[in-house]
Design a protein around this nucleic acid. Structure first.
Lengths: 226, 226
DNA sequence: CCTTTCGTTGTACGGCGTACAGAGTTTGTA
DNA sequence: TACAAACTCTGTACGCCGTACAACGAAAGG
């Protein structure tokens, strides 16, 4: 006899919502109006419900944010991290690029990654596979776990800095547009005060590109595992 | 005749405050009560003034946050980045450690670094010298500016993730205490589901240490400049 | 002296997170 | 079958928040 695992049917009235509905509504809201628009009251309004009704599905506003983080992290396919040991570099590389893409698909969520401990199930799942990949790269002892942290810092930090220059709403401006904006902003750096900066504005404008991200990623991987 | 540069004495009544006083009061507030306590009204109250009086010194709440970021970044001594070309590695290393320390001295400010573009004068000054240091390391073309971004991402990302596990108030728990807390949190990771994670909890608990930061920093620098 | 300029206050508005009590619905048990 | 318990949602309220706007008083220029 298998124990009844499917909905033991609780007592009270049927729920009109679900944690999923709440999370996805919140996600749609921040995608449309940016991170500043996120609030318990706004999400409740979108769902046609009084604000306090949400507290059935989410412990508090911070919990709502955690749910968003969890949801978005799950969008990056962990399968990228699986594969033959000899392919460890492309496994990590592909996953990092996928995670970046997932975060850029919901830019308002990226800052939330750095405002709470990353200890959800999604983060655990990533860590587990990332450590395995670094072991496949030949790292031993403490090195795999340490390298795992460095990689997470790099990916999450890079996306957070990128997104900090946007309003967090979708659709995000194209890479070209964002680079052009940055080029304009850097145009007035005085060359007498900051010669090297003034000479590098072209490259610095490209800091927000996938090419720059991939360049840095490859350098980091070289440093971590040769 | 040199133009009068010292206080041309404006018309209205004397100011009772200064941008510095506002910034430093805000900083003391967040150091004491954490980032969530930061508000225009709280800072005004600390200064014995109505909330709207602050708008003389700061454009809005976001401007207040930017001022905090600027103030804290200036605490990391840029002189670390100067020195002989052959010492490029220790120059960058020392500065990165100093910047981390400055941010940890005001933990509530660290998250603010990722919520607005890093384009203030302090950031420019860092970039200028960091690019020079990477040129001294032998990088040419776009590489110095690209490496500069990677390093900033690493430092700021690392500190932000560290701080995300604290309440942002001073004094911060000691490194040992924070590691011990993390060890407890990881103690219940089920080894059957996450074998590598479970085997690595000791190392993962140490992710918030200066040793881990320095380890990653060295790997990143190796990747960037051999 | 009078006008202009400017820092500060008083007041107000709309929004926020969430605590608390009560009403209504569903289920398990007597 | 009736009742009690459990649970979800609403109504209401409190104390915060950022900041717009008008009015007042102090200082300086002509």
């Amino acid at each position: 006899m298998v124990e009844q695992v499917s909905t033991p049917r609780k007592r009270g009235p049927k729920r009109t919502l679900s944690e999923e509905r709440v999370t996805e509504t919140a996600l749609a809201l921040v995608d449309r109006e940016g991170g500043a628009a996120l609030s318990v009251r706004r999400v409740a309004a979108e769902l046609g419900v009084r604000p306090n009704a949400l507290y059935t599905y989410v412990p508090d506003r911070a919990g709502l944010e955690r749910a968003l983080v969890e949801w978005v992290m799950l969008q990056a396919d962990l399968a990228h991290l699986d594969g033959p040991a000899r392919a460890w570099r492309s496994r990590i590389r592909d996953y990092a690029l996928a995670l970046r893409a997932a975060l850029l698909d919901h830019p308002a969520v990226a800052p939330l990654l750095m405002t709470a401990p990353m200890d959800g199930p999604a983060a655990l799942a990533v860590g587990e596979r990332l450590i395995a990949a670094f072991e496949d790269a030949g790292l031993t002892g403490k090195a795999p776990a340490r390298a795992c942290w460095v990689l997470i810092v790099y990916v999450v930090g890079a996306v957070a800095l990128d997104v900090a220059e946007t309003d967090g709403t979708l659709p995000l401006a194209s890479e070209e547009e964002r680079v052009a904006q940055r080029r304009e902003r850097f145009a007035f750096v005085p060359a007498e005060d900051w010669p090297r900066t003034a000479a590098s504005t072209g490259t610095m404008a490209e800091w927000v590109t996938e090419r720059q991200f991939a360049w840095g990623l490859d350098r980091v991987l070289v440093g971590l595992a040769g």
